[in-house]
Computed example of a mutant assay.
Amino acid sequence: MDQTGSGTAIGVAVIYPMLIVVIVALNAVISASRTEHSLQAAADRAARSASLCCELVDDARDTARRSLSADFLQCVNDAAEESEIDFFDVSGSRMLPTPIPKDASDKGEPKVERLRVPPAGTVQVHVTCTLSAGAWGRMFAGPAGVQRHAVGQAIVDPYRSRLIPVQ
């Protein structure tokens, strides 16, 4: 019996399926890391936009949520609405922003007190994303409902409200 070429057949029968499994596993890992990276980048961008934009906490939160909505995260939940935005002073303790006094000159509807962004410190944006099974890659359907969490942090710009004259 001639056994020429039988080693090639055995190699093809054993090595190629293993190679395909390795390629599928690598695709799933790359897709998962891409999802993690985009979630972290979205949290960082939202924190930076909140630290630069506004004097009022509500406006800063809206800006951060708009930034998260603009990112194309593959979340099952609404990551923009479920995100938490916290402000910390320079010592690291959580700040409760100072309220803006009500406008006494307005005799119409009562003004709602709005909170100011602290003049210094940091802003943190906590984003939780619930992934669908398709977020793990096309060839590998990972577990649905896995939650990933990212924290973006930025320094509050103390000069964000200053107007610089253009010469």
Rank of each mutant, 00 (worst) to 15 (best):
Q3G: 09
T4R: 15
G5S: 04
L19A: 06
V21F: 14
L26D: 03
L26W: 12
A32D: 01
S33N: 09
S33C: 02
T35P: 00
H37N: 08
H37Y: 08
S38F: 11
A42Q: 04
S51I: 04
C53L: 09
C53A: 14
E55P: 08
L56G: 01
V57D: 10
V57F: 03
D59C: 12
A64F: 09
R65H: 05
A70I: 02
F72A: 12
Q74P: 02
Q74M: 05
V76P: 00
D78W: 05
A80P: 05
A80C: 08
S83R: 05
D86R: 14
F87R: 01
F87K: 02
F88I: 07
D89L: 09
S91H: 10
S91G: 13
G92E: 12
S93Q: 11
R94G: 13
R94C: 07
L96S: 01
L96A: 04
T98F: 12
P99Q: 09
I100L: 13
I100G: 00
P101C: 04
D103C: 09
D103H: 14
A104W: 09
K107G: 05
E109V: 14
E109M: 11
P110W: 08
P110L: 11
V112L: 11
V112I: 15
V112H: 06
E113M: 09
L115A: 08
L115W: 09
P119L: 04
A120G: 06
A120M: 12
G121T: 05
V123H: 08
V125T: 06
H126I: 08
T128A: 15
C129I: 03
T130Y: 00
L131F: 03
A133E: 12
A133P: 00
A133R: 08
G134T: 10
A135K: 00
G137C: 09
F140V: 11
G142C: 00
P143N: 08
A144Y: 02
G145K: 04
V146M: 11
V146Q: 06
Q147P: 04
Q147D: 11
R148T: 00
R148A: 05
A150E: 06
Q153D: 07
Y159V: 11
Y159T: 09
Y159C: 06
R160Q: 02
L163G: 09
P165Q: 12
V166Y: 07
V166L: 08
Q167H: 10
